[in-house]
C-alpha cells in the first residue's frame, strides 16, 4: 500500500495544536512509519509551490481560526489539494479563543487595524470577523479541544491516516468514542464524513465528580471558594460547562479542580451551549420568588464569554455568520 500523504497547517491560533501532533511523534518515535508528511510549514518550512507539485494530499490537519486573508487563502488551497480535511482544535473547529474578539463592542480604538495601507508590503488584511474553517471550506472531520487531547488526535491519525494499521504505543479510550467511530478505527475503514473525534454525550458523563441533584442559593466565582474535591462543581456553585460540552477529555479540567469551559464544543444533543447552560443553571435556583431569582441572576457575569468561550463563531446560534459574510474576502477599504 502506498504511503499516505499528510499536511499540517496552523492559521491564526497558537502552536499548541501542532505541538500536540509533534508530541505524538515524539512519543511514538516516529509519526511517519506509514505516512509521509509532505507539507508542514512550521516544522518543514514547506512552500506553497511544493504543495502543488506534490500531487494530492490524503489528509490535511488544519489548526487555527480564519482571521486574515492569508488564512482564508491557505484554507482554500489546502482544501483543493487534500482528499480529507480535518479541523484540528477548537480554533479551526469552532473559532476558538480568537473568536472571543467578536464579542466585544467595536469602537475606533479597538478596531483591528490594517497597518499596511498602501499594500506595499503585502501584509494580509484582517477579515471582518473570526471564522471557523467550515465557514470557508468543506470540512470532513473535526478533532475538538484546545489543544486536542493526544488520545483523540491519535485516534484521528489512526483511522484516517494509518487505517487501523499502526504502531499503537499510545492508547486511546475507544470506549469514549461513539460506536461508529470506534468500530471504523478498529476495523480500518474510513469513519462517516462529518464525524467528530470525541464522545457523544456530555463531559459530566465521564467527570469523576459526584452529582447529588442539589439546589443552592448562591453562585461563586472560581476564585472565591476552594471546592470539595469529590463533588460536582456546579452543585457547589461554580459555573461548570460540563453539561453542555461534548465528552472526550474525560473531565480533564474538573479533575484538576477547574471548571469546564467547553473547549470540545457542544455535546451532540445540545442546540446552543448558552441556552443549555441557562436552563441547567437556572433549574438549580432554590427559589420561586421573582425578585429573589432576579437578584441571584445579577451575581453572574459575562455569560456569553463563558458559555461560548471557544465556540462563538460556530455554535452560538445568534452569532453564526450567514453564507454571504463567509464568502466575502475583506475589501480594500
Amino acid at each position: 500500500m502506498p504511503k499516505k500523504k499528510l499536511a499540517v497547517y496552523t492559521a491564526t491560533g497558537c502552536a499548541a495544536c501542532e505541538n500536540t501532533i509533534l508530541d505524538i511523534h515524539y512519543d511514538l518515535g516516529s509519526l511517519t512509519r506509514s505516512a509521509d508528511i509532505v507539507f508542514w510549514p512550521y516544522v518543514l518550512g514547506s512552500q506553497w509551490d511544493g504543495l502543488n507539485e506534490q500531487g494530492p494530499v490524503d489528509v490535511c490537519f488544519f489548526a487555527g481560526a480564519i482571521r486574515t486573508e492569508a488564512d482564508r487563502i491557505a484554507a482554500v488551497r489546502l482544501r483543493s489539494n487534500s482528499k480529507l480535511m480535518v479541523a484540528c482544535g477548537a480554533c479551526a473547529a469552532f473559532g476558538g479563543l480568537p473568536s472571543l474578539t467578536d464579542l466585544h463592542p467595536e469602537t475606533p480604538e479597538n478596531r483591528p487595524e490594517h497597518l499596511d495601507e498602501g499594500n506595499e508590503f503585502l501584509l494580509p488584511k484582517l477579515e471582518s470577523r473570526v471564522f471557523a474553517l467550515e465557514h470557508i471550506v468543506d470540512v470532513d472531520y473535526f478533532v475538538p479541544g484546545c489543544p486536542p487531547t493526544r488520545d483523540f488526535l491519535w485516534a484521528a491519525i489512526q483511522s484516517l491516516v494509518y487505517m487501523g494499521d499502526s504502531p499503537t504505543r499510545i492508547s486511546f479510550t475507544a470506549s469514549r468514542l461513539p460506536m461508529a467511530l470506534a468500530e471504523s478505527i478498529t476495523s480500518g475503514i474510513v469513519p462517516p464524513r462529518g464525524s467528530v473525534f470525541a464522545g457523544e454525550k456530555a463531559v459530566c458523563a465521564s467527570c469523576s465528580r459526584i452529582k447529588e441533584e442539589k439546589k443552592f442559593r448562591g453562585f461563586y466565582r472560581p476564585y472565591e471558594i476552594d471546592p470539595d474535591s469529590g463533588r460536582c462543581l456546579l452543585e457547589q456553585g461554580i459555573l461548570c460547562q460540563g453539561l453542555a460540552t461534548r465528552e472526550g477529555c474525560g473531565g480533564l479540567c474538573t479533575a484538576v479542580g477547574a471548571a469546564c469551559r467547553g473547549c470540545f464544543g457542544k455535546a451532540e444533543a445540545v442546540f446552543d451551549p448558552g441556552a443549555k447552560m441557562v436552563s441547567a443553571v437556572s433549574s438549580t435556583f432554590d427559589s420561586t420568588e421573582a425578585s429573589e431569582i432576579e437578584g441571584l441572576t445579577k451575581t453572574f457575569v459575562d455569560l456569553a464569554g463563558t458559555f461560548y468561550r471557544y465556540t462563538l463563531a460556530t455554535q452560538c446560534a445568534l452569532r453564526t455568520p450567514n453564507a454571504e459574510e463567509a464568502k466575502h474576502a475583506p475589501d480594500n477599504s
Binding site: 441556552a275 441557562v278 436552563s279 437556572s282 432576579e294 441572576t297 453572574f300 459575562d302 445568534l318
Partner: peptide, 19 residues
C-alpha cells in the same frame, strides 16, 4: 415557575449577545 427561573438568566444572555 420553571419558566420564571430561566427568564432572567436568559434575558441576560440575550442582551449580552445584542438582543
Amino acid at each position: 415557575i420553571k419558566a420564571l427561573r430561566r427568564s432572567f438568566l436568559l434575558r441576560k444572555l440575550l442582551s449580552e449577545l445584542g438582543v
